[in-house]
Amino acid sequence: MSMTLKKPHHVAHHFASEAQEFESARLGMWIFLVQELLFFGALFVVYAIFRWWHPETFMEAHQYLSWKWGAFNTVVLIASSFTMVMAVRSAQVNQRKSLISYLSLTLIFAGVFLGVKYIEYMEKIHHGFLPGSFFSAQGVSEYLHLFFGIYFTMTGLHGLHILVGMALIVWLLIRSFRGEFHSEYYTPLEMVGLYWHFVDLVWIFLFPLLYLIG
């Protein structure tokens, strides 16, 4: 049904074969994710250090975060990861329509995630749970502002990655409409997919560490 629009892919001049081109792209993406891992990893080290110094602060602070919103967003992101793999799979089996629907779903889930994040942020800002010297809420621990510094930095950078991911998915959608992805060529889909799962991965750790165990 979707075979009508199918643009052939041409291997770039400096590669000898499609396989070489694909494997290079995939390795490049993994190496890029390695640097992302160290980037977020360093923040998790910050988290661990301050948690070590002020466990009581973290216990207190997590009560000010809504675990319900956090859990909801976790489900949303997991669902978006699922629709992402299904999108790639649709391209692999030449189902352009389902490719486009799965990509659109992923985009919608990403939007929902950011929407929820917006609600959460607004609430925190409203109550004065702001990072560092902007903090103005009441609390027991005198280090609460540090927790919220870490909270906003980590979730903020994560949110930024979601935003970049959304832009990439829009780009994929445009190319999918043009019929550029099919069983013989879907490299960009697979690469953005890897990126998207990585962003999901970061959230899988952020959720329990920030919202649940305090």
Binding site: S17, A19, T74, V75, F82, M86, Q92, V93, E184
Partner: peptide
């Protein structure tokens, strides 16, 4: 030499993806 890309890619069955999806929800 020309390798067909599909020889490098494994097309994973839908039920594997669904099983992982469900497991992730359960673990959450």
């Amino acid at each position: 030499m020309h390798d067909h890309p599909s020889s490098h890619h494994m097309i994973v069955p839908v039920k594997t993806y669904v099983a992982v999806f469900v497991s992730l929800l359960v673990l959450t």
